[in-house]
């Protein structure tokens, strides 16, 4: 399975990657992008099966990325991993088609619980 991690923080991308491993999701093809715009270009070139995206990022936010994918008709599993999760954000994420929202700081256990059904 191909998993894309989108976050402008390289430390956070590293942590998400390691947490995936600690949650038992090993042997997957994990790719990274440092903002929404770069992720969109990479997804158009070769779509992953699952996107784990931060919300606040320069150039293009996580929500704008999800909305752009919708406009382009690109269907994939998409969830947010973010520090901020206001009711308004949850509402916008849901209506844009996000499958889940994981608040930071997360644990390997929460990754296991929420990503299990999405990662084979």
């Amino acid at each position: 399975m191909k998993i894309m991690i989108v976050d402008d923080s390289s430390a956070m991308r590293m942590i998400v990657k390691k947490t995936l491993r600690l949650a038992g999701f090993e042997g997957h093809d994990v790719v990274e992008a440092e903002d929404g715009a770069k992720a969109l270009a990479a997804i158009k070139a070769a779509a992953p099966d699952l996107v784990l995206s931060d919300w606040n990022m320069p150039n293009m936010t996580g929500l704008e990325l999800l909305e752009s994918l919708g406009k382009e008709g690109i269907k994939l599993k998409f969830g947010f991993v973010t520090t901020e999760a206001t009711p308004d954000m949850r509402e916008r994420a849901t209506s844009a088609g996000a499958r889940f929202l994981i608040s930071k700081p997360f644990t390997p256990e929460s990754f296991k619980e929420i990503l299990g059904p999405h990662i084979g």
Binding site: S9, I15, K18, T19, N56, P58, T83, K104, P105, F106
Partner: peptide, 24 residues
Amino acid sequence: SVDLSAATRYGNVAMEYLINDLMK
């Protein structure tokens, strides 16, 4: 290391809040 501690994840978030608000 592979043994990523909860403390490190937590400190990361403390930094991220600050940086995110500046970016906004």
